[in-house]
Design a binder for these strands. Structure first.
Length: 577
DNA sequence: GCCGTTTTCGGCCCGACTGTTTTCAGTCG
């Protein structure tokens, strides 16, 4: 049985929850939460690291004890003695109550002691019967809030794609900017860090008349419900259900507040710890030496106060960025404007919504030097066969003669069959500039078979790019079982690039794997996978994810000129022959 | 339970809002 990093993280999270209910040492609890986060966001499989004999206590936040517990979980089939002991000591399922907004350890404990409640279902019944308000320390309001929270938790998802969050927030930011008392507005939080999904959005506003701003905020037409509303802080739920928190500060505190609310929490704790060592205190109002405010109007000034250069928001996950900043080794992150072209797009010849010409003209308008046309080739469904590909190639030749400043590349997105062969004859591939090979079927193969399948496809001389390598969909489908570390090593050997598909539901490769590809010197193609002219806008999300993975311009295939790109493709062909 | 540019022991980020607790605990971010 393969133990995933997420399984280990989940054991640690549960231990933290249960320790919290036992009112254990808060720092011990935090250590378990930190460890859960470290393991969860780690790209290589912890199980593999163990097999290679690596010392896990080298991981940040993992010491000898937790390294031992990880080994225990891996070898013990997914659990460890501490979790089992805690589960035995506490009523079954009580940990899940902690995830209900408004309920912390004290109240959960109270609910169990006073009314024997330890499941969401029991809690729902107790709220409906009006029992909660009779408990000392709770009242009618608390009961109502908890009832709503339980109901909404049972009915809907709590995270939104980055694209949806951006769509909802941009008009709200414009609305806030209209108010005369507003000096600056910036969306912070995980949205600013470009996380693939966001749970809620934090907005920071600079103003001298803060109460007017929070009042303006809660009057926004998109508000579904006001959760809280104070003079400097307010929370709303948009009609679509997403929570938005606004925090207003004086303009001289804007940088400190922006840094504070951008997070991540782990990054902030590190920065504040650095400040403490210099006898400084950092809060959302600024950096303080005793009573004196010495910085905070800009984020740069906050970083400078602890001796660091500016760290890009996408890096702020406490994954080594602070050490890199200290050592002058921060990456020069890739930017949207570095992209010279796009290697993955669809037309009406398969499942795209625009014609070849329309796609070409849009790419030209956006200043791309090249656009790869990669319609689907597969059995059945909307796709191109060998004949259609040949006709498309002729049309591409004609358009390339006609269009200025842009070159269309003849490509295809070919399905990888279950045995790793491609779903298109070699003769049809021969006329093309390159192929993207992707998994679109047989997602359930074992890790060994899936990995072998992908490695074989990468060895085909036409396959210069492996498309959305793990085939995950953030809206539902988990990543396939795949030894991505091995795929990356293989990519290095055969000169195949790995794709970062910019569709917000994919963002595949994810940030951790991008980091791994970067470390191995494997090129990443940040592609739109556009199915219409509008989809080129998605590149911003791919760039965001790539920046989270520390990618620099040199790590990204489509920052190359057309000539350099062709050289990379040729190198792959030579390597696999 | 982790960690070390004062430390292998003694620290571990900090403030706003809500509700009900007549002075502040609990929760959240």
């Amino acid at each position: 049985m393969h133990i995933h990093n997420a399984d280990i993280a989940s054991v640690f999270s549960e231990i933290a929850d249960l320790l919290e209910l036992e009112e254990g040492n808060p720092f011990r609890i935090r250590a378990y939460r930190n460890a859960a986060r470290t393991v969860e966001t780690l790209a290589p499989s912890v199980e593999d690291l163990l097999q290679e004999g690596r010392d896990l206590s080298e991981l940040p936040g993992i010491g000898a004890d937790l390294a031992g517990k990880i080994a225990e979980i891996v070898h013990g089939g997914g659990t460890c003695a501490l979790r089992e002991q805690l589960r035995h000591e506490l009523p079954e399922g009580i940990g899940t109550l902690l995830r209900i907004p408004g309920l912390g350890p004290k109240r959960v404990k109270l609910l169990y002691q006073e009314r024997g409640i330890h499941t969401p279902e029991q809690l729902l019944r107790a709220c409906e019967d009006g029992q909660l308000r009779t408990i000392h320390g709770l009242g009618e309001k608390a009961e109502q809030r908890i009832l709503e929270a339980v109901q909404s938790r049972m009915s809907k998802t709590t995270r939104y794609s980055i694209a949806l969050a951006v769509q909802l927030i941009e008009p709200l930011v414009r609305y806030l900017k209209q108010h005369p008392a507003v000096v600056r507005v910036e969306a912070a939080g995980s949205l600013r860090r470009m996380k693939e999904t966001v749970g809620d959005v934090d907005i920071v506003v600079a103003s001298r008349r803060m109460e007017e701003v929070t009042a303006h905020f809660v009057r926004y037409e998109g508000v579904g419900r006001v959760i809280s509303h104070g003079p400097t802080r307010a929370s709303i739920e948009l009609a679509q259900g997403m929570q938005v928190d606004l925090r207003a500060v004086e303009p001289e505190s804007f940088g400190a507040a922006l840094h504070y609310f951008t997070g991540s929490k782990a990054h902030n704790i590190e920065i504040r710890t650095l400040a403490l060592k210099r006898d400084l205190k950092i809060n959302e109002y600024g950096v303080f030496a005793g009573e004196a405010r010495i910085a905070g109007d800009t984020e740069e000034s906050v970083f400078a106060s602890v001796g660091l250069p500016f760290i890009a928001p996408e890096l702020r996950e406490n994954r080594g960025e602070i050490e890199a900043a200290r050592d002058g080794k921060l990456p020069h992150l890739v930017q949207l404007s570095d992209l010279k072209g796009d290697l993955h797009s669809h037309t009406r010849a398969s499942d795209g919504r625009n014609s070849l010409r329309e796609m070409a003209l849009e790419a030209q308008r956006r200043g791309m030097a090249y656009l790869g046309i990669t319609d689907h080739a597969r059995h059945g469904g909307w796709s191109v066969d060998a004949d259609a590909l040949a006709r498309q190639a002729d049309e591409i030749d004609r358009l390339n003669e006609e269009l200025e400043g842009i070159t269309l590349l003849k490509g295809v997105e070919v399905d990888i069959l279950e045995d790793g062969a491609l779903d298109l004859p070699d003769a049809a591939l021969a006329r093309l500039d390159y192929a993207i090979a992707s998994l679109h079927t047989a997602f359930e193969l074992s890790r060994e078979k899936q990995t072998a399948r992908v490695l074989r496809a990468m060895d085909h001389s036409s396959v210069c790019v492996l498309g959305h390598p793990t085939a995950r969909l953030l809206t539902g489908r988990a990543a396939v079982e795949l030894d991505v570390e091995r795929v990356i090593r293989h990519a290095r050997e055969c000169g195949c690039a790995l794709e970062l598909d910019s569709q917000p539901e994919r963002l595949d490769l994810n940030d951790s794997y991008c980091m791994m590809a970067r470390d191995q010197g494997v090129l990443v193609a940040i592609d739109s996978d556009a199915h219409s002219v509008l989809d080129f806008d998605n590149l911003r999300y791919g760039i965001g994810q790539g920046r989270r993975g520390w990618l620099e311009k040199r790590n990204v295939l489509n920052t190359r000129t057309l000539g350099q790109l062709r050289e990379v493709f040729d190198k792959h062909r030579t390597a696999v022959h």
